[in-house]
Design a protein around this nucleic acid. Structure first.
Lengths: 322, 322
DNA sequence: CGCTATTATACTCTAATTGAGCATAAGGAC
DNA sequence: GTCCTTATGCTCAATTAGAGTATAATAGCG
């Protein structure tokens, strides 16, 4: 039984998924923590004026980064421990409030502590910009074991896999990143699942490719990926990741890096233009390897004009960078 | 200074916005609490297996309702108290995790405790199904005072009002319900603002029409309204509010009740049909006042077929019920 | 210098989708 | 039956989305 009365106070953690995009690769800010990398986090303190202020303060303290755009992601608080451990953990359950933060491409400025980790190292099956990644084939193979064959085949599992991973003609929905991670977790194919079940990480099935993280942090990253992929379509958050001036191709590469799918170049430009999302700075970018591109900047006024400005991307059938 | 060390444990509340729709009017489940109505809520307890389970348990205990669909809304945790009160409240700040829950039309079954309150009593300016409601005119009048005139006119305020409330030709975006409430709060035009500032509810400006709630509960309701209005467009949550069999008109009235805008009848049907959201039960509804309508039921299979099934409503220029 | 590779940018064309409205059907009330 | 009301089927134009072609402007290289 819990030591104090059941209506106990709990420790509340603030956890940050800080994202930046460096040309082709989106990165997540991680702090190294044995044995596995973690997201920056820290407990809510009574001197934090707001939850967001608390988060900013922790990230700044732990990594040296001052955050720009921040939005709340989700609050996690389920007891994941089971069996014998449960009683012990009863009294000090944790609630963690996760935030998504975006920072412009950091360039040379490295974080004081921690490091930028490519998010497709964590979730390698999510990158379909150049067609199906090798990790996806591996994941699907493992999942087909989970589905079973013959008399042991579970049709409900098969259907879930079909939808989440777009097998058998279903369309790939890049926003289902969280669903895919959770499916793999449930199938016991990520090593966090074994750890949460109280086993050694090496016990059970060998995990699919992808770097595991502390606690439920990889799940939180997957939540951030899903949210961000959805959000760039109807809010101009993409620009939070860009430098003050950039080319349309750079913008497109950023959108593709996040969404993990190739986009149709001409239509992307038409969309950005028709929404009035950018204006020319007058400058041009050299060193493009071809015709110089005009530099543009974000038009902050769109926020005042359009109800839902964003980059309503639809994947092109073929890769844009063949 | 806080009595214990700053890294204190906090009380976590679970708060529920329970919605049902009765033909024309959406309702929120409230518990009466002096002096103002409140949402059902209670502290997270150590015997709650998950956050959601804790929420369900509180709502059931307080109102007798067993919830169906539940999703997390937002976590609030900012200290709103200022000045002298702050020091006192320092140690026991609260974090409240708000959930949105949907229950089918309750019919005669009244809640054991609490009552269903029409949400447009709380946010009367949000109902534009029959054109501009009287409350909206009143709100706009008060806001124009806030903007100021002549040399005192604040163009930034004017622009925010224009966008949020769709004055001067801007398009009404029903999803901006939260933004509208927050604008009114900031302008001091809802009585919660005066209370939070430590004044008597009657002090300051007279509030705009609309029933005030305890603490920040009306803000939470506005959050729920915004979320729900957005969500019905890409997820079939509408059906969580419907009885097992219903007519397309009933479905449309529910969508209109939530979104607060009239919809084009024929296009609504085309949309629902083309998405394969429903199938005929074979029965017909009598007592429609005209030609009997076919009864339909939700096709659960759509979840398995479409990436984002929902009712992508666009308001018709004219009311559908003239 | 002219050719080629490479990227940027401007247009075109077609197929869907959307917004709006007209027309017809099938009940009840009288 | 007529009239009123709601349900349902269908058309049409305007807009948007998906895909592709054509042309422009650079660098590198013989």
């Amino acid at each position: 039984m819990a030591p104090d009365k059941q209506e106990s106070r709990v420790r509340v953690d603030l956890t940050a998924v800080v994202i930046s995009v460096d040309d082709r690769a989106p990165h997540v800010l991680t702090v190294e923590q044995e044995p596995r990398p973690a997201l920056p986090y820290g407990p809510l303190r009574s001197d934090h004026r707001t939850l967001q202020a608390g988060l900013r303060s922790w990230v700044e303290k732990q990594t040296g980064y001052r955050l720009g755009y921040v939005e709340q992601l989700y609050t996690f608080g389920d007891r994941t421990t089971t069996g014998a451990e449960a009683a012990e953990h009863f009294a000090h359950r944790r609630v963690s409030i996760a935030y998504l933060a975006l920072v412009p491409v950091p360039g040379e400025r490295a974080p004081i502590q921690g490091s930028w980790r490519p998010w497709y190292d964590l979730l390698p099956w999510e990158d379909r910009r150049d067609g199906d990644p090798p990790a996806l084939a591996s994941v699907l193979e493992r999942l087909s074991d989970w589905i079973g064959t013959g008399r042991n085949r579970d049709p409900a599992r098969a259907e879930r896999v079909r939808l989440a991973f777009a097998t058998e003609g279903a369309a790939w929905d890049e926003e289902r990143a969280l669903e895919r991670y959770e499916l793999l977790y449930e199938a016991g194919l990520v090593s966090e699942a074994a750890v949460d079940a109280g086993e050694e990480p090496t016990a059970g099935l060998a995990p699919v490719p992808g770097v595991a993280m502390t606690s439920d942090h990889r799940r939180i990253v997957a939540t951030a990926v899903s949210r961000l992929r959805a959000k760039i379509k109807y809010r101009p958050v993409l620009f939070e990741l860009m430098p003050p001036a950039f080319t349309l191709s750079e913008l497109q590469r950023t959108a593709e890096a996040l969404s993990g799918v190739p986009l149709h170049k001409q239509n992307f430009r038409r969309l950005v233009a028709s929404q009035g999302l950018v204006e020319e700075t007058g400058g041009v970018a050299v060193r493009t390897g071809g015709r110089p591109a005009k530099l543009v900047r974000f038009r902050k006024d769109v926020m005042l004009e359009r109800p839902a400005p964003g980059v309503r991307l639809t994947a092109s059938r073929r890769a844009s960078y063949p």
